[in-house]
């Protein structure tokens, strides 16, 4: 059975990709119900983005990571550099394969669910999510399945991904480097330092995907800081930038295929943190970490049950 599951599927229909997005939402709603709270809105906003990246957009090799969750393999150091890197779940590095950097690392549960839904890790590994002593941490780091690096301090991963793209370009690799960002972290100055540099070095192998869900910890982005107009900003810093409907698989795939000769490509995915789980809209814009109170449980449990039929 495991051999069948583990064989990485490479062609997905739109319906299959949507099914994976639905299953991501359902599983993370399940985690929220089980634990009382989690980054549910991020799953709602990014489910189609991440499902599309894994099934239709990125060119990844089969997972080279352990099938099951593993105990935390230790902090990197002179005596511990051969630990299992989380990036192995996106395939062993190869010149023609793409790479995936996740800057918004509190999306870890979404990544783990996507890995499970695409046969890259055991579905039962999710039982170890946020369990002390395991590698399935709530905020992803070097060793977390699907992660290249430790991205918890916002604004840095885009530069690490760009440096990687720069190196791969010099080496003549044909694979691309993808980097997923949240929109709140576009307030970090380093993001823009990176875009100007990626444009200067003409990194046409670098694709930045922004889950523009319009929310950050303290509320709606527009009530905290000005980040718009995003497309104009990225273009003026020297990138090619396009906007798409982040809940529409066709729109996402088309946007990521936009030509971007001699420039990095930025894809702004307009999304909502309550897509697929309507009652969340009542909590908007305070959706960074969703808690479900005992009184709210019946409503969410009902949605969870309804999702079960088509989600799994």
């Amino acid at each position: 059975m495991t051999d069948l599951v583990r064989k990485t599927k490479t062609r997905y229909t739109k319906a299959e990709t949507q099914k994976i997005a639905d299953s991501i939402r359902r599983q993370i709603l399940g985690i929220a119900l089980k634990t009382g709270g989690c980054y549910l809105a991020q799953a709602c906003s990014s489910a189609e983005i991440i499902a599309s990246l894994y099934t239709k957009i990125m060119n990844l090799g089969p997972s080279a990571g352990a099938w099951d969750a593993i105990p935390f393999p230790g902090v990197p150091g002179p005596d511990n550099m051969d630990y299992q890197h989380g990036s192995l779940y996106n395939g062993a590095p190869a010149p023609d394969k793409d790479r995936f950097f996740v800057s918004c690392c509190h999306y870890a549960s979404v990544i783990y669910c996507a890995l499970a839904a695409t046969g890259r890790i055991s579905p039962s590994a999710l039982d170890k999510f946020n369990v002390d002593g395991w590698n399935m941490e709530m905020i992803g780091a070097e060793h977390s399945p699907g992660f290249e690096n430790t991205a918890g301090s916002l604004g840095q991963t885009i530069s690490i991904a760009a440096g990687t793209a720069h190196a791969r370009k010099m080496k003549g690799d044909t694979g691309l480097v993808y980097c997923l960002l949240g929109d709140g972290e576009l307030q970090e100055g380093q993001t823009w330092e990176c875009i100007q540099t990626a444009a200067y070095y003409q990194l046409d192998n670098f694709i930045i995907i922004v889950d523009a869900n319009g929310q950050q910890v303290e509320g709606a982005i527009e009530d905290q800081m000005i980040i718009e107009p995003l497309e104009e900003r990225f273009c003026s810093f020297g990138a090619k930038c396009v906007t798409c409907d982040g809940h529409d698989i066709d729109s996402l795939v088309k946007a990521c295929r936009t030509g971007h000769a001699k420039k990095p490509l930025v894809v702004i995915c307009r999304t909502h943190g309550y897509t697929g789980v309507p009652p969340l809209k009542e909590k908007y814009p305070l959706l960074h970490f969703v808690r479900i109170s005992p009184e709210e449980r019946p409503v969410y449990e009902k949605i969870y049950e309804e999702m079960g039929g088509e989600g799994k």
Binding site: G155, G163, A167, E193, T197
Partner: peptide, 23 residues
Amino acid sequence: YFTMGIAEQNMCSWAAGLAREGY
């Protein structure tokens, strides 16, 4: 020789990306 502009934060993280690829 890579000129990174007057932008040390990006330079540092960018160097990390280069180092990850063997530079």
